[in-house]
Amino acid sequence: MQKIAIVGAGRVGESTAQFLARRDIAREIALLDVREGAAAGAALDIQETAPLLRFDTRLTGSHEASVIAGAELVIITAGLPRKPGMSRSDVLDKNVEILDVILQDILVHAPQSRILVVSNPVDVLTYRAWQKTGWSRDRIFGQAGVLDTSRMAAFIALETGLSTHDIQALVLGGHGDAMVPMLRYSSINGVPLDHFMDQATLDNIVERTRHGGAEILALKQTSSAYGAPAAAIAEMVEAIALDRRRVLPTVALLDGEYGERDVAMGVPCILGQGGMERAIELELNAEERAAFDQSIAGVRKDLERLA
């Protein structure tokens, strides 16, 4: 890619820029933040690591929206962060306002781009971005499942003591307490998880995955997670920038998959040069379907709040 833009130079945005720069997958990364000097300072700080980390990506930053001009991909991390005790839905109204302003800037300065939404509640905001731009669904998608899957895999590794390299995990549904960790589609190098753990341990892993972000927020108090989210974003961006056509859990606009339309939900998707190239429909058993439907219902309830 020639240019990637990141809107929001807070902890997630800045960490994302660092992860992407280290992978050297774009000629330029531009950061935008409403706080004067914040994006420019973050960009310069990361740029000064280039000789040490050995990358050639050029970073710029500004509080002027024109800095994103010509970006092929815009990553939206800006928004009101959660505080301890808050759900992702609690920040919905304010973050919709923030997103609407950002979308206007994208339509003016980067109208040919693709949009990766990260801000919470990501399912609702991904839908909002599609609703406000009128773009095709391949150009607008959200990050949630890669992070949730990584958390689940990390918990499995911690419980079993086995290498993370061999763990395959999958999480569907909304990015919240009603997400659907898919034990049946998860394994350790092809061996089912129940070969290594009893059901009570697996159930604990599922619950810890669902509350993974809240656990970090409760521990840190003054900051939500940013390292793991940034790494998850970088994984998705690399799949697109290098046309890897990877199958990754992605917040996608559903168009008949799983019997659903007019809603954004986390499902496995093929990510490549074409953006969200295809949503993959898995066969769900009765228990998985019930959990997926519950997750869908929660997202639709939040969508009713959109003006």
Rank of each mutant, 00 (worst) to 15 (best):
K3G: 04
K3R: 14
I4H: 00
V12T: 14
E14N: 07
F19K: 02
R22T: 07
D24G: 04
D33V: 05
D33S: 03
A38I: 09
A38K: 10
A38W: 01
A42V: 03
L44H: 14
D45G: 08
E48R: 14
A50L: 07
L53M: 15
D56P: 03
T57G: 03
T57I: 08
T57P: 01
T60M: 02
G61Q: 04
H63N: 12
S66H: 07
S66E: 13
V67K: 04
A69V: 01
E72L: 06
V74K: 08
I76Q: 03
T77E: 09
T77W: 09
G79D: 01
G85D: 11
M86E: 14
D90G: 03
L92D: 05
D93V: 15
E97A: 13
E97K: 12
I98Y: 02
L103E: 03
I106P: 00
V108D: 01
Q112H: 15
I115F: 01
L116R: 01
S119H: 07
V122I: 11
V124N: 07
T126Q: 02
W130E: 05
K132S: 13
K132F: 08
W135I: 01
R137M: 09
D138G: 05
I140C: 02
F141L: 11
D148E: 13
M152Y: 08
M152L: 15
M152W: 07
A157T: 06
A157R: 04
G161K: 09
T164R: 15
H165D: 15
D166Q: 15
D166P: 04
I167V: 12
A169W: 07
G176I: 06
S187L: 09
I188G: 07
I188F: 09
I188L: 13
N189K: 13
V191F: 00
L193M: 06
H195E: 15
F196P: 07
D198L: 09
T201H: 08
D203W: 05
N204M: 12
V206Y: 05
R208F: 07
T209P: 02
T209Y: 01
G213Y: 04
A214K: 06
L217F: 05
K220A: 13
Q221V: 13
T222P: 02
A234E: 03
M236V: 06
I240E: 05
I240T: 06
A241F: 03
L242W: 11
R245S: 12
V247I: 15
V251W: 00
L253E: 00
L253K: 03
L254G: 06
D255H: 13
E257H: 09
E257R: 08
Y258V: 01
E260S: 10
R261W: 12
A264I: 10
G266T: 15
I270C: 02
I270L: 11
L271D: 02
G272W: 04
G274N: 07
G275S: 08
I280N: 10
L282A: 10
E283C: 09
L284F: 11
L284S: 09
L284P: 05
E288S: 04
A291G: 08
A291V: 00
F292S: 08
K301V: 14
D302H: 14
D302I: 08
L303Y: 09
